[in-house]
């Protein structure tokens, strides 16, 4: 029971990341009709917003390390600590949550620039061409990050207050054996809040209503005198922010490198396809579902029966679902067909 609860949590955690990326992918596909292979790169750029902010906050001066006597050793002391003492240390400790505020405007700008500068020229082109150009863009973005930050993962510690683990077992009366890291719980809650916020935005605001109408019938909405294109551009920006925030929050779980987005992109596409192209709810549900399945597949009991199943389970499920339900779990008729 304990093991199952822990694997469910692990799965929800991974699923949270998949769902956030898949949600953005589906939003862009549903509104603009673009298959965006650069979406993983947006996740990566978000993660590097966190890296950049930490680098800014920890700009340091070199101070001689007196404890080393037989050669000149230097310690790097951040200016923030020199100037503000404990308060400075606290600000650095909060680098990841602060990066959320830092990443929102940056990711929005990147998203808008990407859509206006490149993607809009490919609306009327085939999906194959869209895939090629966005994939190319992803590689360019990766290489820029690699050139500047290097190829190696850069660890981003979670704030001290949530660095340990929570005793979940006690909550459910399962004893002390079920503990789970606080930050992973924070990530899970965060992904839930962001997903809810996106749905609420689309469901309960006039802007969202127009966007949904545009997704149903773009032409009619245009005939009503609404500049639907401008709204779709903003939706692209929002999708970029969602992917970016998913990246920021994931950094304490997995130290980011330039390739982190690509690792998630492939899985997220499988998530979108399983969920059903163009279905927002499907993307979210499939994200969590596949995350949990992947977690269970990596249990020793399962692997002892089917060795290596943890590496292929997602693709296996995708094949089965596409054979049984070619439109995916919640796919609508007419999307990506004909």
């Amino acid at each position: 029971m304990d093991a199952i609860l822990l694997q469910i949590l692990n799965g929800l955690d991974k699923g949270g990341a998949y769902a956030l990326i898949a949600l953005g992918l589906t939003l862009i596909f549903g509104t603009l009709g673009v298959v965006n292979f650069a979406h993983g790169a947006l996740f990566m750029l978000g993660a590097f917003c966190a890296v950049s902010l930490r680098e800014l906050l920890t700009l340091s001066m070199k101070v001689k390390d007196e404890s080393i006597t037989f050669f000149d050793a230097y310690k790097e002391v951040p200016y923030l600590e020199v100037w503000f003492g404990e308060t400075g240390t606290m600000i650095i400790d909060l680098a990841v949550p602060l990066s959320i505020l830092f990443a929102i405007p940056i990711m929005l700008l990147i998203g808008l620039a990407m859509e206006r500068g490149l993607i809009q020229h490919f609306y009327k082109r085939t999906h194959a061409e869209q895939i090629l150009v966005t994939f190319g863009l992803a590689i360019v973005l990766q290489e820029i990050v690699k050139a500047y930050f290097g190829a190696n993962p850069i660890p981003q510690p979670a704030p001290e207050a949530v660095a340990g683990s929570a005793n979940i077992g006690a909550l459910f009366g399962l004893g002390d054996s079920v503990v789970y890291p606080w930050w992973r719980l924070v990530y899970l809650a965060f992904s839930g809040v962001v997903i809810a916020a996106v749905f609420a935005f689309l469901q309960f605001t006039t802007f969202g209503m127009v966007v949904r109408a545009g997704m149903q019938d773009r032409e009619t909405v245009g005939l009503l005198g609404i500049n639907i294109q401008r709204r779709f551009t903003i939706v692209f920006g929002i999708a970029a922010v969602v992917a970016g925030l998913a990246g920021v929050m994931y950094t304490p779980i997995l130290p980011p490198d330039y390739h982190i987005g690509m690792d998630f992109l492939v899985l997220s596409f499988v998530v979108v396809v399983v969920g059903g192209m163009g279905s927002l709810g499907g993307a979210v549900a499939a994200g969590f579902l596949l995350g949990i399945l992947q977690s269970f597949a990596s249990m020793n009991e399962v692997k002892s029966i089917l060795p290596g199943i943890d590496q292929i389970i997602i693709y296996l499920v995708a094949v089965v679902i596409l054979l049984v339900r070619p439109r995916g779990l919640m796919g609508r008729k007419g999307v990506m067909e004909g």
Binding site: A3, N10, S295
Partner: peptide, 22 residues
């Protein structure tokens, strides 16, 4: 108790660590 192989450069080891707990 067990010896479990993990891929080189796995990054996130959570799915391998949780089974240790029990």
């Amino acid at each position: 108790a067990a010896a479990v192989k993990t891929p080189l450069g796995a990054g996130d080891f959570s799915q391998y660590i949780t089974p240790v707990l029990n």
